[in-house]
Every structure is written in structure tokens, then in C-alpha cells.
């Protein structure tokens, strides 16, 4: 059986207070924390669970996609450490008030955020897309899914 948890949208300055309030209600374990880039907006999302029951709370906060930053919750939830580290590396979100960490998977100092929609997908730009052709042999102008027109112009 799947159980849906309502998403609670909160402001960045209430992030820590709302998370600790959830913990006070029993949801004191970080199941996961990640970010969602919808191209229009950037969100950070955390799923807090109550291990004693099936209850959980999902908190979401919209960030400034140009300079994404939010307070770290690792002081209250040590289990968030790994997730914040990964989210910082993959989405370029700065978690304030925690020790900075080395990159796990990307090259250090690269500065790219692989899971942001604005990051060019190099392999997808360079590899010929098998879906480009149509049955009639005419080349379609359509780009492969996820590839933006501006990435292909400077090739």
C-alpha cells in the first residue's frame, strides 16, 4: 500500500524551525533530503519520518535558483549530513552553517552542478540521436529530450 504524504511549502527563513517542529511532533529521522529542479524553480525537499509509526512529513522550500542557499539542518538531524553533501554537489545548493565537504563524484573545482537543468548534457549534444530521422527520410528539427537549443549552437 502506498501512502501519500502532503507536501508542506515553507519559506527559507523558517526551514530549521519547521524541521525541528516536525521532530518535536515525532518525525525526527531524515528519510531523505534532495532538491528538485523544474527548470522554472528550484526546491529543496526533506522527508522526515516517525520510526515508531508510519507517519511522515514532507517539507519543501523554494530557493533562489541564481544563488541557491539554505540553512543546514545537520546540527539537529545528523542523518541529513550525507544528503546535504550530495545535494550541494549535484544541485549547487549551499547549506549554510555546516562544514564544507569535498566533492564525492564530480571533479573538484569543476563548479558544475550535474542535476541542474541548466547544465549542458555534453554526451547528449555530441551523440547522434537515433530519433532524429523520420520514416520519410526528412530530417526533423526537433531536438532530443532534455537538450536545449542554446547548447547546440556553439558546437
Amino acid at each position: 500500500m502506498t501512502q501519500t504524504t502532503a507536501i508542506i511549502d515553507i519559506a527559507a527563513d523558517e526551514w530549521v524551525a519547521t524541521c525541528t517542529a516536525s521532530a518535536a511532533r515525532g518525525c525526527d529521522v531524515v528519510d531523505w533530503l534532495t532538491a528538485v529542479d523544474t527548470a522554472e524553480s528550484l526546491f529543496v525537499v526533506v522527508h522526515l519520518v516517525d520510526p515508531g509509526s508510519s507517519r511522515s512529513e514532507m517539507l519543501r522550500c523554494e530557493l533562489n535558483s541564481e544563488r541557491p542557499e539554505i540553512a543546514s539542518i545537520t546540527s539537529w538531524f545528523p542523518g541529513a549530513d550525507w544528503h546535504e553533501r550530495e545535494t550541494h554537489e549535484m544541485f549547487g545548493i549551499d547549506f549554510l552553517g555546516r562544514s564544507q565537504t569535498n566533492a564525492l563524484l564530480t571533479r573538484a573545482g569543476d563548479g558544475s552542478s550535474p542535476l541542474r537543468k541548466t547544465t549542458p548534457l555534453d554526451a547528449r549534444v555530441r551523440t547522434p540521436w537515433p530519433g532524429q530521422k523520420s520514416a520519410t527520410g526528412r530530417r526533423r528539427q526537433k531536438l532530443p529530450p532534455g537538450v536545449r537549443a542554446e547548447w547546440t549552437r556553439d558546437e
Partner: peptide, 22 residues
């Protein structure tokens, strides 16, 4: 198969290729 190319374009790993003519 009608060579409609739907599978080729939907494939996330680009592993299908179809050659066809009219």
C-alpha cells in the same frame, strides 16, 4: 511495426535505431 519512431524517441538510453523507407 509501422516505423513510427515512437519507441526510438522515447527510449531514455537511445539504444533503439530504426531504418525505414516509404
Amino acid at each position: 511495426c509501422t516505423s513510427c519512431m515512437v519507441c526510438v524517441r522515447e527510449c531514455p538510453s537511445w539504444c533503439i535505431s530504426v531504418e525505414s523507407h516509404v
